[in-house]
């Protein structure tokens, strides 16, 4: 009895191990492509960004629209300026910074129905 259970557990571990091998896993599930091309650090510690970036954006959205506060730090335009791919200039697409992670996490957002996903020349923006 114990022997069989141990055998099952071992088999499960082996399967889990195989799934963790990058080459094979990537074939079935598209992993997020987190390739940072600009900037040393994010606007907050990475662990916090992973967990809380949506709250930051929604908070900033209300401040900007209703009070006209346009501090760049948590502005969506600012995220895009750093995180857009150098190749496509966009945060969307197969390897896009926002879209690839969202695809992996099964999140769908409608922000880019309206907002441009492209990096803009910051010429006009103030510091």
């Amino acid at each position: 009895m114990t022997r069989i259970a141990a055998g099952i557990i071992a088999a499960m571990l082996a399967v889990a191990g195989a799934a963790d091998t990058p080459g094979r896993a990537a074939g079935r599930v598209a992993l997020p492509v987190i390739k940072i091309e600009k900037g040393e650090a994010c606007v907050a510690p990475t662990a916090q960004m992973r967990r809380d970036h949506m709250q930051m954006l929604l908070q900033q959205r209300d401040l900007t629209l209703h009070q006209g506060i346009r501090e760049p730090r948590f502005s969506l335009k600012n995220c895009i300026d750093c995180h857009a791919s150098r190749k496509t200039g966009s945060v969307l697409g197969k390897d896009g910074f926002c879209s690839s992670c969202h695809a992996y996490a099964a999140v769908s957002i409608d922000c880019f129905e309206c907002h441009s996903p492209l990096r803009q020349a910051q010429a006009a923006a103030r510091p």
């Binding site: 006209g68 346009r70 129905e113 309206c114 923006a125 103030r126």
Partner: peptide
């Protein structure tokens, strides 16, 4: 498609002159 970064626009919402609020604010 092809929106300006300063002026997001999308289907299903109402819009009007904003007095170019993005310019006025700077």
């Amino acid at each position: 498609s092809g929106q300006k970064a300063d002026v997001p626009r999308g289907k299903g919402t109402v819009e009007a002159c904003t007095l170019c609020v993005h310019r006025v604010d700077r």
